[in-house]
Design a protein around this nucleic acid. Sequence first.
DNA 1: CGCTATCATGACAGCGCTACCATTTTCTTT
DNA 2: AAAGAAAATGGTAGCGCTGTCATGATAGCG
Lengths: 344, 344
Amino acid sequence: MSKDSPNAARQRRSSDQVTLSQVAQMAGVSPITASRALNHPDKVSDSARLSVLQAVETLGYVPNLVAGSLASARSRLIAVIVPSLINSVFVEVIKGLQETLEAEGYQILLGNTDYDLDREYQLVRTFLGWSCSALVTAGLRHNKACHTLLANWDHPIMEVMELGKGMDLNVGLDHVAAGRCMVNHLIDQGYRHIVYVGARLAHDYRAGMRYEGHKEVLQANGIEAPLVELDTLGSLQAGAEGLAQVLASYPHTQAIHFANDDLAAGALLAAQRQGLKVPEDIAIAGFNGLPLGQHVTPQLTTILSPREEMGRLAAKELIRRLGGKNVYRRQHDVGFTLQTGGST
Amino acid sequence: MSKDSPNAARQRRSSDQVTLSQVAQMAGVSPITASRALNHPDKVSDSARLSVLQAVETLGYVPNLVAGSLASARSRLIAVIVPSLINSVFVEVIKGLQETLEAEGYQILLGNTDYDLDREYQLVRTFLGWSCSALVTAGLRHNKACHTLLANWDHPIMEVMELGKGMDLNVGLDHVAAGRCMVNHLIDQGYRHIVYVGARLAHDYRAGMRYEGHKEVLQANGIEAPLVELDTLGSLQAGAEGLAQVLASYPHTQAIHFANDDLAAGALLAAQRQGLKVPEDIAIAGFNGLPLGQHVTPQLTTILSPREEMGRLAAKELIRRLGGKNVYRRQHDVGFTLQTGGST
DNA sequence: CGCTATCATGACAGCGCTACCATTTTCTTT
DNA sequence: AAAGAAAATGGTAGCGCTGTCATGATAGCG
């Protein structure tokens, strides 16, 4: 009566994949021992481990990490969400993360928001679905839904780039202070007509924060703080355009404080082509400390931000946390350094 | 006798996660219908789809992609393996890939080999374990084990950057031809004492291929083809060092053919700082067509490689293939363009 | 109006692995 | 040498989802 018919081998996928069971069988142990031999080598006898490893080799077994993750509810994936890949700054942070995480056997799942917080939310949703071990995202600002989602997530969250009270861990620097620092330098140098040039500050809001610091200091000194905002994000070309716009709109300008080094270097090179003397005719300052700035003449005055270091530190903190260690300092200020060159 | 005891609810992980079953229950449909409502919306009735979506919203359901991938043996992950993240060239390819793939709902799993083929093999193993939908890797060269592994893998493989008979799909350009092209230009300009400067050519073997083309042409013209090899990979600093080494070792040099624009621009800026006239005292050529080259004075002669385009095209071809379409041309030459500037 | 195509839905089983517990084997200890 | 502790191993039962097939509901047709 019971329908225990042979049931004609209803297998679905041919699935020629070598499985752990096959490895176990060849090694003469149970599947679970084979699993341990690979994942917790110290929990099995030497002989068992050896024969399992040999079987792995012989059969060309490649562990199915998807199955493993489902069973253990842990993956060794780390989601990394950045707003841009054009901006080399984020790439350097990724590099720092990547070299540290990969050495610990984690893989990076990369997402790019294009400075769009809704896009960020979508990416976070997807990445949570992958049972990522942790999530790294650039910035402390998220939209409502994203915030809720992350707040209820029980894995480490690392917010990088800027400094402040975040959701969990944070490694970054104080952009408002950086803006203040640079403009103080410009004032010290005797400049009074200073323009800030940035691009899409609503999106690249960290550049906006630097402008806030810039403006604050100038206003405290009773100086105007005009802003020129460009459409295209940091590039040499945009910097050249920024220079042109400033010269057209604010002919008395003595110094330009650019939101980043790409813009600043673009302006500096453009000034050279036009026969403008830097800093006599126009002083130029940037932000980031890209190598390029040190190779132009005059050298670019800029603020050096430790980008790879930021990535590495973030990765190390995550690894500590993932290793179950208590993390005391939840905020890490990587700081910044004013690098004065001949351009101011 | 049979030990069918109540067994006291042996659940293991608290797993407070909202599951598809809960969504289905709230929507008043079966789990499988809920699954279809989310993944094949056109296969369910409007009413079912609506109530499922509403339940998803209410419960804050986040699909477990790991479970889905295991069940369907498909993930929407694309493995991308590059040799370096310092070299902006690869980042631009990644960017092209990323924007195209992400728009189609694929995620990128990123790996960095640091120009090490054994490392590549390890990464490939890991990525295959994630049931990636496809794999993109830079270059046609792999070690034996990696080759075997990939040859037996039944998903699309895309090899980018260089052109040739690959394992599956290929999008790239002919580096030997690029090397020939540039050196031909230098000869046309009347230079005879030409040095090629590269870094770690055994690893960055595509730069080595350009040198091959370079050497081939020079030898055909009965000209020596000296090579200066640096230790550190492309950077402005290394370029400055390259210039110094060439001037020391080959004082009669008229033109330097650099392996890439970072080196070339570094040398050009260094020459400027030293008061050397470019191209009168020394001509400088690069490769890649980085924006920087167009902003220095004189403009850098270089070969423009369509990097983002390469990434986009590779992604499009992959998507076509993943969509089940037959792909006729398995090799795509994205070509290159000689861009002459004042530096030669 | 009966019969077949089409659509919508559901039951069942299982993807490949690991957590949990139980059991066996080996090593200490007095 | 017996008792207890520790180490090694295995059985069972899922993790959460989707492929496969079967069924019921709806439409199409002469």
